[in-house]
Design a protein around this nucleic acid. Structure first.
Lengths: 236, 236
DNA sequence: ACATGTGAAAGAGTTCACAGCC
DNA sequence: GGCTGTGAACTCTTTCACATGT
């Protein structure tokens, strides 16, 4: 087993959600030739407090230098490594509608953390067709041994009514990470991680805030970004 | 001013994120003829603890009956009301690519909490064309007075590089609720709510858990659903 | 009996504030 | 002087446990 500190102390979930933001910013800064950045500046860019940045980054090791700040390239590298390096996890998608097609063609889904390797549907007019070079198959007829590397991530873009069955099928294939766009809570074994991307709920939350005003919270979003009251004022 | 308890005591954000789930479940149960449900059963369906269900529901009023549980139709109605009733907030979308097209055609975006009323892009080959019956315009040339009812929700499906400009443009139109699919933290005035839907971050979070295992957390998802360790075991 | 509503306790995460190092 | 790393305080949520009501 290579690497060093695998299974260190398990980071707090909100920290895990913020790390990709730091990584993205640090990478961009490094690319632009900026070598170091203070927790205060990085916090401003990420929309969180300087204290949170320091706590987050110190939780994955000592990577700052007192007096000058964090090395941008270093932060980008260390965080990337912690988040699974440059692995391209084999990813499968079930429910090949417009959303799935949009995702498949997005560079976000084909490169860094994931790479689409199989597509599933049940509609006979879709099964057998080819989308972006991949044949659409039936999940129920899939055979895990067909894969060189077994799929690691399963994406659900199917109707809510089919979501639980698809989730079951994914779990049976040995997939332990799911991302669901279906408006439904899934039951999965304890070792499976599920991330929900539920546009309906997001809209309802926005609707609530339109009606009742905003709490003193930050964007309060998607990724549990933070509760900080730090929300920059309108731009000049 | 109609209604009753506007601006009651501002609910905790995690509660706001869970209410749509209860609403959805309660509605479904009522439709199927189930009149009441206990906090324990509702919690199981929603993936949270019974105590959390009770705390959440009691925070919006007294809607349970001791001894028998919650009236499903009642829960559905009260929560819907709190989340903005059946209002269809006029919604605009900037960045008309595959994702936007998928959203526009989705029933989720055209009906209950939102209704798409305008589309924007900057690509000259797209501006002027019609998508699902709406002409694509330039945000920079938009005139608020054109709208009968001013837009309330702005959706960003544009490249990250354009996101901040679009957000500024939206804010200038008077929009106070944004939903961004662009991988970038936005600066907005304090009275504007932003919800991020960042697929890249979600994938990186999954990647992290594939590498380091799951904490004892729930799906831990998107909408700050909950931190409960209540994750049902594999289905039979 | 049974199940809600809610004080009180526990747990999680964030912010403060400063010692320690560059 | 400037900025990180971190114990301690604080705030926000969840869970416990039981009084209360049907």
């Amino acid at each position: 087993m290579p690497g060093g500190l695998r299974r260190s102390k398990l980071l707090p979930e909100p920290t895990v959600a913020r790390l990709p933001i730091y990584q993205r910013l640090a990478e961009e800064l490094a690319r632009r030739g900026r070598d170091t950045i203070s927790s205060e500046d990085l916090g401003r860019l990420a929309g969180v407090s300087a204290a949170t940045v320091r706590r987050d980054l110190s939780s994955i090791g000592r990577l700052g230098t007192r007096g000058s700040g964090y090395d941008t390239a270093d932060v980008a590298r260390r965080v990337t490594e912690l988040l699974g390096g440059h692995a391209e996890h084999p990813t499968v998608i079930a429910g090949i509608g417009n959303l799935a097609r949009a995702l498949i063609n997005s560079p976000l889904f084909n490169g860094f953390p994931s790479k689409v390797v199989a597509l599933y549907d049940v509609d006979p007019t879709i099964v057998g067709t080819s989308v972006s070079g991949l044949e659409v198959r039936r999940l129920s007829e899939e055979d895990v041994t067909r894969f060189e590397v077994p799929p690691a991530i399963g994406v659900l873009t199917c109707p809510a009514s089919a979501a639980q069955d698809v989730a079951d099928g994914f779990c049976e294939l040995g997939i332990r990470a799911l991302m669901s766009f279906s408006p439904r809570v899934l039951e999965v074994p304890l070792d499976v991680t599920v991330r929900y991307v539920d546009v309906t709920i997001e809209l309802q939350i926005l609707s609530y805030h339109l009606e009742h005003g905003r709490g003193p919270l930050n964007g309060g979003l998607l990724h549990t970004l933070g509760r900080s009251p730090l929300q920059v004022g309108a731009r000049p």
